[in-house]
Design a protein around this nucleic acid. Structure first.
Length: 707
DNA sequence: GCGATCAGTT
DNA sequence: CACAACTGATCGC
């Protein structure tokens, strides 16, 4: 949980993710993502009142976050006071003190945070230096190097302070399986179950919060079955998500919720109340996404753990692991770092102790590892923003230039996106165009944008006026759209088949290792990774940092063991009285063999390969592309994601004895592909709201193949 | 009645 | 596991 108070030392007149107390005096507000713990005070009467009196105060966030927030009636009063800013589009904002008229200019750039739909990190540049507020984030190792706007002139910008998500900044969370590995494990677990019969269903026991969408979309895409959820109106303008969800209970994948869900499950009843289909009882398993971590010395991991007869825990994390945090911070190398979260069981001092050495003032004055030998930018270069030309902004009402939006509304918040040229010199604007606010675009633009909204249903007052609720079908756009407000967002959460599929195929490891992905599992140590933790142990199985202790192999442990893995044994089957025969007809589930333990050698290889891939991108020019159209180009960014974020040369982890190193030929192959620009890995998917388009074209085919 | 806080659940 | 939320009890306006 964030304990950030809302203000940064360098720019105390703005407030981020906190809207109470001192923050009630802010000149501008920023919301990194739509999770309640970052919205404290956002709907309080005191703030609402202030808004009515201070007409120049706005809330800035990503287009997706705006949609999600405004879908919730409780926040609807913000409607006219929210300004969405496109990802990776430096935008100047005038911070005006309404009492004194004093004004300060600041340039903010939203960077994808990989935490949940619409989540971003804020990079601020102004007279007090460049600072980065990460909000909550999960970026795989090496991903910082892919964030173009974190760089300038080929180097990392000179960042004074970083306000960092330190949720897992504790060595015990050294490693958390990558998003792709986790997704892959869940896909196989689900596949092994729902392919048994139409009466085999899975219940994803997810919390009521944004962040699981990419899981839903990938499952839906993979199996051609929409995911049953309680509410989906918040996604009405996000077709890439909406299309994979349904309010029709007749599906094999459920993510619906109910206060007594756990109790229901005991009786083989889903949260939505169904227990059978066509009079035939359902056979259900539950999968609870949970964060699983591995200690420093344990590299293997299983991403699925069986916690009961019909219950599984699947690795899933919204936050960066310890090694990912260190990789990120050391890459940025700020002068100061301020933890936003103090993990339970540790203290602010301990966290700082860990982080300080990664900052510049400590010995790292000189650049540390820079891919491709790039030098870190020198001090003098810095401060792009420093040179001020405030005169440009004298205009009382700055006009936002939104490329995407042609002219339109006149009222404008004071925010101007800057183009590439000006990016490093915020103060100098290239010119201002007519105004157009992000919101309220002409309808014609509509087509180009996709709106999104959502909210964690706070009180579910569904205001479902029209659309919503109900059913599944595509929901008509609410009237608000009529206004023309259409945030654009790009798809996120697309599955990268590339990763999963391709990488498996292409990666050397797999090949040699023998086979399909699964083979690897065994390779490791014990040979067997897979055993499950059987029933009881919900706990035993998991992970352990202590892995070191003795169970190294345990990591593999994870999952479902092959032995027990006979589904026939699963209770549900038993009770359900199911069809025994079924099992035979169904191809052996993948799980039985491996899935669950993705990592192992194979993963090591994979991750390394990916690390490799990262390099090239780092060296790329930082040209900004404007707006949404950049999707394609950005693709490279996503590549890294899949890899095991943790593996890296930076933190040398003693490698697992039996782990295999990438074979030379494989690396060579990867390098060749990189050189030719061929895509190697899969894209990461949901880092932010722009993904879809990035998806390689070919991918589609591979997916189909799967089905 | 609403909101904020805290403890207990999930 | 911890997450991000929800529920319920308490207290104050």
């Amino acid at each position: 949980m964030s304990s950030f108070e809302g203000q940064m030392a360098e720019y105390p007149t703005i407030s981020i993710d906190r809207f109470d107390r001192e923050n009630l005096r802010a000149r501008a507000y920023f919301l990194s993502h739509c999770h309640k713990d970052h919205m404290k005070g956002l709907r309080a009467p005191t703030l609402k009142r202030r808004l009515e009196c201070s007409l120049k105060v706005y809330l800035y966030c990503s287009p997706v976050t705006k949609e999600l927030l405004l879908t919730n009636p409780k926040y609807r009063f913000w409607e006219k006071r929210i300004i969405s800013i496109e990802i990776e589009t430096p935008t100047q904002i005038s911070l005006v003190d309404e009492a004194s008229g004093e004004k300060e200019e600041i340039v903010v750039t939203l960077l994808p945070a990989g935490h949940c739909p619409g989540s971003v990190m804020f990079l601020f540049q102004g007279n007090n230096g460049t600072v980065l507020y990460t909000g909550d984030f999960r970026l795989a190792k090496g991903e910082a190097a892919r964030l173009e706007l974190l760089h300038s002139g080929g180097r990392v910008k000179d960042i004074q302070s970083v306000y960092l998500d330190t949720t897992f900044c504790d060595p015990k969370y050294y490693q958390i399986p990558s998003r792709e590995e986790c997704l892959s494990g869940i896909l196989e677990l689900v596949r092994g179950w729902i392919t048994r019969s139409p009466y085999h269903v899975v219940w994803l026991n997810c919390k009521a919060a944004y962040g699981y969408e990419y899981l839903f979309t990938n499952l839906s895409e993979e199996f051609g079955a929409q995911v049953h959820v309680d509410k989906l109106d918040m996604f009405r303008n996000m077709p890439d998500i909406l299309h994979h969800l349904t309010t029709d209970r007749d599906t094999q994948i459920h993510a619906c919720r109910h206060p007594k869900a756990e109790e229901y499950f005991q009786w083989n009843k889903l949260p939505c109340g169904i227990t059978s289909k066509n009079r035939i009882p359902l056979h259900t398993i539950s999968i609870k996404p949970s964060t699983m971590w591995f200690g420093e010395r344990t590299r293997k991991t299983s991403v699925i753990v069986r916690t009961g007869e019909s219950s599984y825990r699947a690795c899933f994390s919204f936050h960066s692991s310890y090694s990912e945090i260190k990789d990120f911070l050391s890459y940025i190398s700020p002068v100061n770092v301020y933890p936003n979260v103090i993990p339970l069981g540790t203290t602010m001092d301990k966290v700082k102790e860990i982080l300080k050495p990664l900052c510049r003032s400590s010995q790292n004055i000189e650049p540390k590892y820079k891919p491709l030998g790039k030098l870190k930018r020198t001090r003098t270069i810095h401060r792009d923003t420093e040179e001020e030309d405030s005169d440009l902004f004298d205009d009382p009402l700055p006009i936002p230039l939104r490329h995407k939006v042609p002219n339109q509304q006149t009222y404008h918040p004071e925010a101007l996106p800057m183009n590439e040229a000006s990016q490093n010199q915020p103060e100098k604007l290239t010119g201002r165009t007519g105004c157009c606010k992000t919101e309220r675009m002409p309808t014609s633009l509509w087509a180009d944008f996709i709106d999104c909204e959502e909210s964690n249903s706070e009180s579910e007052e569904l205001e479902t006026p029209a659309s919503a609720e109900g059913d599944m079908g595509p929901v008509p756009h609410p009237q608000q759209k009529a206004d023309g407000e259409v945030p654009q967002w790009e798809v996120f959460f697309k599955r990268n088949d590339e990763i999963t599929d391709d990488s498996l195929e292409n990666l050397p490891s797999s090949t040699e290792a023998g086979g399909s992905q699964s083979p690897k599992l065994f390779s490791d140590s014990d040979g067997e990774s897979t055993h499950i933790s059987s029933q009881t142990s919900s706990q035993s199985t998991h992970i352990s940092e202590q892995g070191s202790q003795g169970w190294d192999s345990q990591s593999d442990t994870v999952l479902l063991c092959s032995q027990e893995r006979n589904y026939g044994d699963l209770p549900s089957l038993n009770k359900g009285g199911c069809i025994t025969g079924i099992k035979e007809h169904i191809p052996a589930s993948p799980m039985e063999q491996n899935v669950l333990c993705p990592k192992d050698t194979y993963s090591d290889l994979e991750s390394r390969a990916q690390d490799v891939s990262i390099v090239p991108s780092t060296g790329e020019p930082t040209a900004l592309s404007s707006g949404k159209h950049m999707n394609q180009e950005k693709k490279p960014q996503n590549l890294s994601s899949n890899a095991d974020s943790q593996s890296s040369s930076d933190f040398e982890i003693p490698s697992t004895p039996e782990a295999e190193l990438p074979k030379r030929e494989h690396l060579q192959c990867l390098y060749e592909k990189l050189a030719t620009g061929e895509s190697i890995a899969v894209e990461k998917s949901f880092l932010h709201s722009r993904a879809t388009t990035k998806k390689p074209i070919q991918i589609g085919s591979s997916q189909n193949a799967n089905r």
